[in-house]
Design a protein around this nucleic acid. Sequence first.
DNA 1: ACAATACCGTTGTATTTACAACAGAATGGA
DNA 2: TCCATTCTGTTGTAAATACAACGGTATTGT
Lengths: 219, 219
Amino acid sequence: MKEYVSILKKTKLFAGVGEEEISAMLSCLSARMQIYKKGDYVLRQGTHLSDITILVAGALHIQKDDYWGNRSILGHIGVGEIFGEAYVAPESGVLINDVVAIEDSAVIFFDVKKIITTCPSACQFHTRVVQNMFFTISEKNKKLVQKLDHMSKRSTREKLLSYLSEEAQKQNSSTFTIPFNRQQLADFLSIDRSAMSNELSKMRKEGLLDFEKNCFRLL
Amino acid sequence: MKEYVSILKKTKLFAGVGEEEISAMLSCLSARMQIYKKGDYVLRQGTHLSDITILVAGALHIQKDDYWGNRSILGHIGVGEIFGEAYVAPESGVLINDVVAIEDSAVIFFDVKKIITTCPSACQFHTRVVQNMFFTISEKNKKLVQKLDHMSKRSTREKLLSYLSEEAQKQNSSTFTIPFNRQQLADFLSIDRSAMSNELSKMRKEGLLDFEKNCFRLL
DNA sequence: ACAATACCGTTGTATTTACAACAGAATGGA
DNA sequence: TCCATTCTGTTGTAAATACAACGGTATTGT
């Protein structure tokens, strides 16, 4: 786990906390790490989770497959992001999505109860981490609201533009890359892949945008 | 504000805290209350918010209207529920939705920073409230994930069944009422009202469910 | 009590989307 | 390098949805 402390230091969860304090807290909070190969399930729908988790290497998708194999992707988790935050409350029930490694990945699990019930004055930086976690979950919340905003659009084109605009804004550039291939983007926006490809082509013809692979530019 | 302490006592945010402690905390946290008439805007898209808010009377909708007057409803807030939790983080930006009173309502605003930065040992129950708020935001998070689950369904029928099933489960009964009229339900699920009415009728004919006004029964 | 308004279901038509199939390009492994 | 696999854009058709319009029924306010 030691090798990832420098990664943790850069995350929002540990913002303002030094590497040594992080190391100390890892044992104090009885954190455990797990390695996954591309394609492995990190968490499975229907199971319980009482940990908060943070990705320190690789990338994950939070997704769900129905009976007919139709997949819908709830979100993409990059290095430094947390997940499982919707299930920290007691009686929050079971997971309603799978979490899958789309690259070789490493995940650290923290016992949530230890984080929030241990007296914050125990470690000097504990208070800070509690605050950070608070804000992180709130940000996550906003992300979900934004995704709902895309999904509430009625047409394929509107959904695409809504999502791409947000990415451009988030990456602070009209040229940006997205963490999805075509099928994944379609599954993320809950639209048909071929219809989406079609719409992208039309928009390119109309001069609204340009793209190559997963790199896009809004015009 | 005094008259709503008994309401606050029943909320998840103040679970485990007595009425007297709540009264004490209200001033300690410099809470302020605001009254709204049906139809009033509680919060407006594009503005900043650094408070966490709790509804103590009435009902609210979190919604958004586009240029053409098409409305989409993100969520319904009932008495005891919090809102604005997605914007407590510093630099979380401006609101992307309006919050509107759909009945005469009363809202209490708390300064988030005071809640989480004041030393939790100051008031005996402060720690408890911080934990409660933590869990409440997490639950809110789960709610959003569930709504995304409905919205990711491809057809009108699937969206309806997904939503109605969740309501039945939440209210622990196959007979239940929903807090929306038809137009609002359509705006909530991002589908066409007439198509929805049509689909509901079909499902009733098929014996899948029954309904009258906003009272439904799954069969 | 009555008028005005809002709500709900229904229908028909135009538009959009889903689905299936395919070919060329890119990618990855042996 | 070559073969198998995946990824992407395109097309045509079937199916679903959006939109507009309408009448009947509640609801509201005066």
